[in-house]
């Protein structure tokens, strides 16, 4: 009887392990600091996670299709710098679509290399991480980019505005999460993404145009990056060339924390959102209990390793096994 109960507990953990860990974690920090679950703090965490979150939503498509995208950090810097520069040259209503087009052109280029030329995505996007950084610096001439008239533009609404008391970045993150959940879970395209990531050969043998599906995942990823760049630029109305540096790893961490397999074929947008929130609340919680911000780098890593280990352990039913 107790054995039965243990088994059902294990299988529940295997399916929803990350959600359970998240709840336990929230309870722990709430006990440590009463302010942790206050509305202000929660909204604050989601708002500061929104940029990371928006990028992670797009990368989820790439990872489910069995590829990686390490270029999103430097691509986000590019979007931010471009939209700030064009803001003063073309005006915000032209700058935004122009920036989206340029960012998504980069995504299309990556999608072409990985999808149609079938190059390894790790190598392509690692290279693009560096190449896009160079592109950004070339574009800006290495200087920081600032909007001249910071108080007189409606452009600030995307980063600083609020509707019914909810910050606009949070709304954009939420809206995008819902739309992308529906696309991945409910449309034929979403099904094809899972098939290509689960077994690309079988997908081809079922008449699924694998190259086009992979191409589209990078288009979606770059669209999300452009959105993140828009929020970032609008929030600060000025930026360094390196604003997105290192974010690609946080993004990947969030996607993995959500339980997507790096081998492809599994993961959902909703789980990625949970992964993003876990990362956000860990970093916030550590600050609230009085630790220095740099401790979070170590703790985040430890939590990711634990999450991945427990995930595998729950799937195979024991903590260690001689075979995988």
């Amino acid at each position: 009887m107790a054995d039965e109960r243990l088994k059902s507990l294990t299988s529940m953990l295997a399916r929803h392990g990350i959600l359970v860990a998240f709840i336990l974690f929230m309870i722990g920090f709430t006990i440590a600091n009463q302010r942790f679950l206050g509305l202000d703090n929660v909204l604050g965490v989601i708002r500061s996670s929104a940029i990371l979150g928006v990028m992670a939503l797009g990368v989820t498509f790439v990872v489910v299709s069995g590829n990686l995208d390490l270029s999103v950090g430097s691509m986000m810097s590019f979007s931010t710098i471009v939209v700030l520069d064009l803001h003063d040259k073309l005006g915000p209503s032209m700058a935004i679509p122009a920036m989206f087009a340029m960012t998504m052109a980069l995504g299309a280029f990556i999608g072409f290399l990985v999808g149609y030329l079938k190059l390894n995505s790790l190598i392509v996007t690692l290279g693009m991480l560096s190449a896009i950084h160079g592109l950004t610096l070339t574009y800006s001439g290495g200087k920081n980019m600032d909007i001249v008239d910071k108080s007189g533009t409606w452009f600030s609404v995307f980063g600083q505005g609020a509707i019914f008391g909810i910050p606009v970045p949070v709304l954009m993150f939420g809206l995008l999460a819902v739309v992308l959940t529906v696309i991945l879970a409910k449309t034929p395209f979403g099904r094809k993404v899972y098939a290509v990531g689960g077994n690309g050969t079988a997908a081809t043998f079922s008449g699924i145009p694998r190259a086009r599906v992979v191409f589209m995942t990078y288009i979606i990823s770059s669209f999300c990056v452009a959105t993140a760049g828009l929020i970032q630029a609008s929030r600060s109305l000025g930026s360094q060339n390196t604003v997105g540096q290192g974010l690609e790893l946080d993004v990947l961490a969030a996607v993995i924390l959500g339980g997507a397999s790096l081998l492809g074929g599994s993961g959902t947008v909703f789980k990625t959102v949970i992964g993003v929130l876990i990362l956000g609340f860990i970093q916030n919680g550590l600050l609230l209990v009085g630790l220095q911000f740099y401790v979070q780098y170590v703790v985040t890593w430890v939590i990711i390793i634990l999450a991945v280990w427990l995930d595998i352990a729950a799937k195979r039913g024991r903590l260690w096994s001689p075979i995988a």
Binding site: R191, K192, N199, T201, F205, S206
Partner: peptide
């Protein structure tokens, strides 16, 4: 290797080639 996406369920495997038409 070529016929099935092993991680997918039975139904999704069976309808894979025509999923775009079953909407």
């Amino acid at each position: 290797g070529q016929g099935l996406v092993l991680g997918m369920n039975c139904r999704d495997n069976m309808t894979l080639p025509q999923v775009a038409d079953l909407t």
